[in-house]
Nucleic acid binder design. Structure first.
Lengths: 206, 206, 206, 206
DNA sequence: GATGAATGAGGCTTCATTCAT
DNA sequence: AATGAATGAAGCCTCATTCAT
């Protein structure tokens, strides 16, 4: 169960073979899981794409599931950190919610592979691991909801819809990004983010 | 889960064995795919749950994929039919969009197993079948977008966000329903639908 | 085990659907076995090609093996009959052997599908059926060998090689026909037959 | 059957488990395919006979077909090598053809299992693999035919029959060996070979 | 740190045959 | 005379994981 073993780029010659093995494995797994799905990607494919052997994979990761978990973790930690930062700022709640809503869109697009893997695979983990991941996710969800509730209490947001449902409304669109967003499309990540945040804020106008 | 009626025992001896085999198989597959995911459900489990043998399954369905396709089809046909009906009515566009937006939520909740299977499994079909399904789905999407565009042209909806993106915003929340909606929760399907339709319409106010 | 049920063409309208079912089945099976091999042809394919259902097949034939047996029988009976006729004629032994040698080539080419099925499938029957078929085949073989021996005794054929081996030499080339003979090739069946019979007779010159 | 040596226990504890796994698998497959035919031999039987598990087989061979291909290859390579050697010698063409004709008989008998598998199974491969095998076989065939043509041009062989057909005549008898040759029969492989080569040469006398 | 051969369980699918109608 | 649903056994192959080196 040796997870989180990525010990940093050691110098790095031009061919990239100096990238540490754990990182190479994680990168290969991320790409393949995103392209083919978790179940349809074999350990053999991962090690071949990473240019190592099975023994190496099992040296760094306890199981195929561990790879998944690590991919999840990377994104979750990143987004949680940024939300805590933004929500804690000293600014009107509308602005803080708008920024938080846009930020989760941008970081999701910037890590679209990780995000898609997360959204699609979460529900097919063992119940035990599922509970663990859900718990981490919930903390994020609740911090976000607190922003909505704060605005509702202070009268700047409509209370027509329950805060809970509003948050799910927004996160639905974030989860859905992988189904339609294309890097070569007309809108930049930031533009998409601004639009979606705007839609959220508009829907909350009293 | 297990939302829609697998209860139509037609005639039926006490064990329900009078239900036609294909229906029994479809019901069993739907339940298991929803509970465990497509890849993690074996054909063996399906036939055991349906009380038949593997041979019988392959007598009616060409492959495990075919079962999936049939489940998709049921829902797609239902929703397309209803959208065509609602969108074609003689009523102000705000009202038609509101009803369509609410209707897709209600039918999705009413068929939550089918819907979740659809949303989660679509992207792990063979590229060929995936294209076919996407094409059917697109028709639905475009009819919906046409409503938004109609309202934007006539000035009743804001043009701040592209119609395309607005539609994806709403469908994101629909896809997301399976992640949080629980039949035993505080809100009825219709209430959830009304809320989500309201959020959509609010976000489109000029 | 109702074999040999072909009761003759009953009138026959223009679409061929008046061809009796057993004959249609036999024709379909012959073509498919020749094209794909016995094991790789399913009963389902046969009945579809014949335009009937499985029940019909099993009404006329006891098993898939029975179809095979019937195909064998047709050819064996034909060739045995003709050999008996030719060998019993009142003519010099060289002429009788030449004619017999050519005749088996012509009838094999004329029934190339049946022959190929026979040569290729014989050895994968159940040991019991295999013995039965071998016995029928042996009778043919021995009648042929008797001709060679007769010529050797009377001094018109060389005794350099055992008669047994000479016969196998010739039958080898007959069995091999399916591997190279093409109906659209340069040589007609009769020309091929004459050449092969000539090679046999030449190799027997003292 | 079981002609060629599967007896090269390299080192080897008492149970022969020191023979490399791929060789054990190949030996087992060869024996079983020859005895029962390719289609009627299951992968399960092969691995049991070789004393390994299915996983091991698929570690070394991509498919059941691959085993077959390897068996083919062994024989094809051997015979091609020997023909090239014999045909290129500095000797009268009659002698070179006689030796080549006898040699293919001897090596076929010495590897009768491989040969029979080849002759019987070739035609039931996938069209693609079939073309590949045919191409390799054709090279052998053409080298052989060149010898006949050389003799015909120089007048030592009759031109009554086309060279092509003469070659097929001979190869027919080679393919047929498995149908009658028995190791415990009266004739040794070399005697059979000499007789068959003699019949060929006799049939070519002008 | 890393190899790669081997395991063993399980996956999907095919098929000849039977039987009630 | 013919149907076609259903069986049940078997078939080929995949894969995450382990372990001796």
């Amino acid at each position: 169960m040796r997870t989180r073993a990525d010990t940093d780029t050691t110098g790095g010659t031009e061919d990239g073979s100096a990238v540490p093995v754990p990182r190479r494995l994680l990168a290969a797994a991320t790409r393949l899981f995103a392209e083919q799905g978790y179940d349809r990607t074999s350990v053999q494919e991962i090690v071949e794409a990473a240019g190592v052997t099975k023994g190496a994979l099992y040296h760094y990761f306890g199981s195929k599931d561990d790879l998944l978990h690590e991919i999840y973790g990377r994104l979750l930690r990143l987004q949680q950190e940024r939300l805590d930062l933004l929500a804690g700022r000293d600014a009107p709640v509308e602005q803080r919610l708008r920024e938080a809503a846009a930020d989760v869109v941008v970081t999701t697009i910037d890590n679209l592979d990780d995000a898609m893997i997360f959204f699609r695979t979460m529900h097919q983990l063992s119940p035990e691991k599922q509970r663990q991941v859900r718990a981490e996710r919930r903390r994020y969800h609740e911090r976000f909801r607190a922003l909505v509730e704060e605005g509702q209490r202070s009268g700047v947001f409509s209370t027509a819809a329950p805060a809970e449902l509003v948050v799910d409304y927004h996160f639905g669109s974030v989860h859905h990004l992988g189904s339609w967003y294309r890097p070569d499309g007309r809108l930049s990540p930031q533009q998409v983010a601004d639009h979606l945040a705007d839609l959220l804020l508009r829907s909350l106008r009293p």
